[in-house]
Nucleic acid binder design. Structure first.
Lengths: 220, 220
DNA sequence: CGAAGGTCTGAATGATGGTTCACTTCTTTC
DNA sequence: GAAAGAAGTGAACCATCATTCAGACCTTCG
């Protein structure tokens, strides 16, 4: 043999793959899953349609990867806030909802694509899976709250499912257009979530999101 | 001219159209929108693929009609319970949620297709529209409740959106499999909805659903 | 350099499934 | 019964993309 893959090549390939996924995510956020044909996505990533198949076995596989990467990040962030966050379970829940909502509002197109837009069956299945994860995270914190008597007796799974559905519904619909209304929306959502979980009304805690969203802390 | 459409023919045509929509609904409930090809649907309705186009300009038009008919019924029922129902706004809300949930649980496949299953863009658009209607209905009753001081200050639209999303999420997911758990689910959902709206805990009212679901009253 | 083994390209291929249409089969009217 | 005008049929048609593949172009190594 006269050729063997060299580290440099591996890096280039991996970079190309990454770029493909990233660009595909942008396209999906922009025009939805339906508009993201292989040709279009490949062009956006600066490669030919054929090359896509160097990195993924099928379009569905690429779509799933796009979904996983974007959603994975959200689950991670939410989990971090809900679990490692400061304060009692109710505070963490409130904060988690806020962070989740703000992030979604900042990238509406992507949020819509991830949560609700028509998509491949493969993505649909993945969607269910990730919704289950959101639910599990919320359920955990609710369960904690119930255990220490901060929240009334309830089925945490159901409350968690409701929170997931409620937040999704509110964020996805073109309900709030002007960005300046976003803060009011987040506040309402926070209050609503607490009521859903049965927490007694309490004033919003002081934690400017910019300091507590793990993503921002890291990347800026 | 030697032929003019006669009332009998009109009736037959209308019946065929109805039958087509009804059968298409069954197919969709069974195998989802994706599996409901024109050929399959036509076969289910006992006609040829070509004949479908006698009644609808396109497959999308048929799909929209299927969606509208099924969802329209639900909006109607929910509206009736929420508006003309007996009791104060909170009671009506609780009852509305119960009826909605029970109906969905009775026809899971259809509920899933209407609320969440991947579908034509045309159906997706319609879906948004109908969600808006559910939301409007819930918002109205919440607004009433706030007005008379039964419910705390809140943005009724947002609470309503949350209720829609929450109920959808819970009903659609394969969370509850055994039918015997359905009643518990409905009870939890009822309690959850009241908490979401901020109603103080109160015991379930006595109204056996069989007597108060407008659909049953009428058809059985 | 040249051989070996990759990667990349983009036009051709193929599958799917909605839509059309020439033709057959009713219905109605005279 | 026959002509006129629909309605019904289903095989052929066609558009859309995902996927493939033969050849062009690169990278590595003796």
């Amino acid at each position: 043999m006269a050729y063997r893959e060299t580290p440099a090549v591996r890096r280039r390939l991996d970079a190309a793959r990454d770029r493909l996924v990233a660009k595909a995510t942008d396209v999906v956020a922009e025009v939805g899953w339906a508009g993201a044909s292989v040709t279009v996505v490949a062009a956006a990533a600066g490669m030919s349609a054929g090359s896509v198949y160097q990195h993924f076995a099928s379009k569905a596989a690429l779509a799933v990867e796009v979904f996983r990467r974007a959603s994975g990040r959200e689950v991670e962030v939410l989990g971090e806030v809900l679990r490692q966050g400061s304060g009692d379970p109710v505070e963490r829940l409130a904060h988690g909802v806020e962070v989740f909502a703000r992030r979604a509002l900042e990238r509406r197109g992507l949020a819509y694509a991830l949560l609700a837009a028509p998509a491949d069956p493969a993505v649909g299945a993945e969607r269910l899976e990730y919704r289950r994860r959101y639910r599990a995270l919320f359920a955990e914190v609710v369960r904690e709250g119930v255990a220490i008597g901060l929240l009334p007796e309830q089925d945490p799974e159901i409350t968690a499912a409701a929170l997931t559905g409620a937040i999704g519904e509110i964020l996805v619909d073109p309900l709030v257009e002007p960005t300046d209304a976003a803060e009011r929306l987040v506040a309402e959502l926070r209050a609503l979530s607490l009521r859903c979980a049965g927490a007694a009304a309490r004033p919003a805690h002081r934690h400017p999101s910019t300091m507590t969203d793990p993503d921002r802390r890291r990347t800026r």
